[in-house]
Amino acid sequence: KKVLATKVLGTVKWFNVRNGYGFINRNDTKEDVFVHQTAIKKNNPRKYLRSVGDGETVEFDVVEGEKGAEAANVTGPDGVPVEGSR
């Protein structure tokens, strides 16, 4: 997949743990970017399912997906594990 941007910060708009996807709002362009649970690189080690929490700040790369921009290599800021869904 073509990389459109790297090390982008954003805020998780919503994430559905059961369906394994959601959207992140980019801090720079204010665009919403699709995020799938497989894109989460560093999950909260205390959680079994990969997820990001609503309102959580995350860092990610933006790649060209089949339906437009999507997140890849999702971590917390500066590469720490994500907090995950509460």
Rank of each mutant, 00 (worst) to 15 (best):
G76L: 15
V3N: 07
E31V: 05
I40L: 10
G55M: 06
R26F: 00
G20A: 05
E83F: 09
K42V: 15
R86L: 13
N44W: 11
P81N: 13
N44S: 11
R18I: 08
R18E: 10
V82T: 11
H36F: 01
N25Q: 15
E31C: 04
K67Q: 11
E59C: 12
R26G: 00
V52Y: 07
R26M: 03
G65N: 05
R50V: 11
G65S: 08
L4E: 05
R86K: 14
R86S: 13
D32G: 01
R18S: 09
V80K: 14
P77E: 07
T6Q: 10
E64W: 11
G55Q: 07
G10Y: 00
G55T: 04
V62C: 01
V74S: 02
V17I: 11
E83P: 11
K30C: 09
E56M: 14
G22M: 02
K41Q: 10
T29V: 01
V63N: 01
V33L: 07
D54C: 15
Q37P: 01
A5P: 03
K47G: 13
V8Q: 05
R50K: 12
D32F: 00
Y48K: 15
G65W: 00
F23H: 04
V63F: 04
V8T: 04
V12P: 03
E31P: 00
A39E: 08
T29W: 00
N73A: 04
G84M: 11
V58W: 05
N43R: 13
L49A: 13
V52F: 13
V52I: 15
T38K: 12
E56R: 08
V82K: 10
G79M: 10
T29Q: 03
L9A: 12
V62M: 05
K30I: 01
A69G: 05
N73L: 01
T57G: 03
N73M: 00
S85R: 14
T75N: 04
K1Q: 02
D32E: 06
G20T: 02
L4Y: 07
N19K: 15
V8W: 02
E64N: 07
N16G: 02
E70Y: 14
G68W: 04
V52S: 05
E66S: 11
G84V: 11
P81W: 12
E70T: 07
G79F: 10
A69C: 12
A69W: 09
K30F: 09
D78E: 13
T29S: 06
S51K: 10
R18H: 09
A5I: 04
R26Y: 01
N16M: 04
I24R: 01
K1S: 03
R46M: 11
G53K: 15
N44F: 13
D78M: 12
T6M: 07
V82I: 12
P81R: 10
T6P: 06
I24T: 02
V74H: 03
G84K: 13
N43M: 12
V82G: 10
E64T: 06
E64A: 11
D28C: 00
T57V: 14
A39N: 05
S51V: 13
A69T: 13
E59T: 13
E70A: 07
G10Q: 04
I40N: 04
V63Q: 03
D78W: 09
V12N: 01
H36P: 06
R50H: 10
V35I: 09
F23I: 09
V12I: 09
T38H: 08
S51T: 13
T6W: 06
T29L: 02
K41I: 13
H36S: 08
N27P: 02
R18W: 08
G68D: 02
R50I: 10
E56W: 08
K30W: 03
N25H: 08
F34S: 05
G84E: 13
N16L: 06
G79H: 11
R18G: 07
G68K: 02
G10A: 03
R26L: 00
E70P: 00
Y48W: 14
F23A: 05
G84W: 11
T29R: 00
F15V: 01
F34W: 07
A69H: 09
R86V: 13
K13V: 10
K67I: 04
L4D: 04
V8C: 07
K13M: 06
Y21V: 05
T75C: 08
G84S: 11
F60Y: 04
A71V: 02
F60V: 01
D28T: 00
V52R: 04
T6S: 10
V63L: 08
G55R: 06
N44I: 10
V80S: 13
D54I: 14
Y21K: 00
G20W: 08
G79A: 11
G84F: 14
K1T: 04
V17F: 09
G53N: 11
R86Q: 12
